[in-house]
Design a protein around this nucleic acid. Structure first.
Length: 421
DNA sequence: AATCAATCCAACCGCCCTTCG
DNA sequence: GCGAAGGGCGGTTGGATTGAT
């Protein structure tokens, strides 16, 4: 109310950011860290207001952003959280590592609201819609709450837009199949000789999220998967040791073996070699089935996905209310979590801000899937491009920890706690 | 091929809360 | 205690993209 704008707007750029602007901002923040947002544009040589810089950074340039299509598990988590938290997007986002409140909000408005309506549920209350409302599945009803929304939408363009929509007879409108979000360029911070640079992360051959990899899923009739994992291996009761784990990892990445050793060795020492090898086999089984093109040279020696699935299904989840976790070969769940967490944390810290722990409970898929998906999605080759510990961005200390909430009751409990604070 | 409508999502707006002098 | 500044947050906009006709 009568407050001065956050900055002098005269002469400042607005609208979409250019890649040069992105570079300047990223490079400044990488070198100097986050300080006063108002000062940043000047220091970074940008003709933007501080607020615009902050938004650009938090919603788009931050190295820990996940981007890409929301998984079904994420969708469900958003729905659960929204049921208890309402439109508190930032709180919801806090439970979804790598996602921003803006992203979730957009996703909610464009997809999830409709999904709820199509299920006959009120997006606000998550309760069944009354019959009268049920008939009206049009999007225009998103003014639910009724009369209030128009108060803020005073401008003519909006109502014009709306009347345009309404003027079209319902029957003639063909609903476009929702597609995945626009594949925004995935930018990650890397170090070059000249300093930090923004690199486009190569797209994964296929989004892992479009496939349900959970233990409950059935791959048997899925030719897409079976085609790539036709090679059977004997199981791994054999004489391999943890060095095989390292070799296997090295074989599909540009990660130098020596570097890998120094990074991972301390962790591997704490785990049995059988556990490590099982872990690695399970990665390969899933990854090769989803991204066969990434594994042309590895078709011999891959474990069978069916084997992995059959064994994983027997493992009970350690979290009440969750489905059995994907936990191939019976590695004890806590051990597995500990291993994954340590491994990704270690790599992230030593090798730049690309590899990150995004492991969190996923009711449909078990604990560790998302971490694996992240690995695949970034493209293994790009993960270890700059193995220079000295260049690791300082902000990579913020490795997200597994979220503590999974079930509806837990979510409600969390919401209640948040409200108390 | 051109046009129109639907959809997506980055960016913006403005209010609110917190911090600090 | 007060006011200003900074930052966070939820709601909204509008250009770009996509699909249908």
């Amino acid at each position: 109310m009568g407050r001065k704008p956050c900055c002098e707007k005269v002469g400042l750029r607005r609208g979409p950011w250019t890649s040069e602007e992105d570079q300047k901002l990223v490079s400044h923040i990488t070198n100097n860290g986050l300080s006063c947002w108002r000062a940043i544009p000047k220091l970074a040589g940008l003709l933007r207001c501080g607020k615009s810089c902050r938004l650009r950074w938090t919603n788009y340039l931050r190295p820990d952003l996940k981007r890409g299509i929301f998984s079904e598990a994420e969708e469900n988590l958003i729905l659960d959280l929204h049921a208890t938290l309402g439109n508190r997007w930032s709180r919801i986002a806090a439970q979804l590592p790598g996602r921003t409140d803006n992203e979730i909000k957009n996703y909610w408005n464009t997809r999830l609201k409709k999904r709820l309506r199509s299920q006959g549920l009120d997006p606000n209350t998550h309760l069944p819609l009354e019959d009268s409302k049920l008939d009206d599945t049009e999007d225009d009803t998103d003014d639910e709450g009724g009369d209030s929304s128009d108060v803020t939408m005073s401008d003519a363009s909006k109502s014009e837009k709306r009347s345009k929509k309404k003027s079209k007879p319902k029957e003639t409108v063909k609903v476009r199949q929702p597609k995945g979000p626009k594949p925004a360029p995935q930018l990650k911070m890397c170090q070059s000789d000249e300093g930090p640079v923004l690199l486009k992360v190569p797209k994964a051959p296929k989004s892992p999220i479009s496939v349900n990899p959970g233990p409950g899923c059935n791959y048997d009739d899925d030719s897409e998967h079976s085609s790539s994992s036709t090679v059977t291996t004997k199981s791994h009761e054999d004489h391999r040791d943890s060095s095989d784990f390292i070799k296997a990892l090295t074989s599909v990445s540009s990660f130098p073996e020596a570097e890998l050793w120094s990074c991972i060795k301390p962790i591997t020492n704490s785990f049995s070699s059988t556990a490590l090898l099982s872990e690695w086999d399970s990665y390969r089984a899933f990854d090769s089935s989803l991204f066969p093109s990434s594994y042309p040279q590895l078709n011999s020696g891959l474990p069978k996905l069916e084997d992995v699935n059959s064994k994983s299904s027997a493992v009970a989840s350690p979290v009440q209310g969750m489905l059995p976790a994907y936990n191939p070969m019976g590695m004890e769940m806590q051990t597995r979590m500990q291993f994954s967490s340590q491994l990704t944390h270690e790599i992230g810290q030593n090798y730049g801000g690309i590899f990150q722990e995004t492991c969190y409970p996923q009711p449909d898929m078990g604990m560790s899937w998302s971490m694996h998906a992240e690995l695949s999605h970034c493209g293994t080759e790009s993960l270890f491009a700059t193995p220079n510990p000295a260049n690791a961005p300082s902000n990579f200390e913020e490795v997200p920890q597994p979220s503590p909430c999974t079930t509806s009751q837990e979510l409600q409990r969390l919401a209640a706690l948040l409200d108390l604070i």
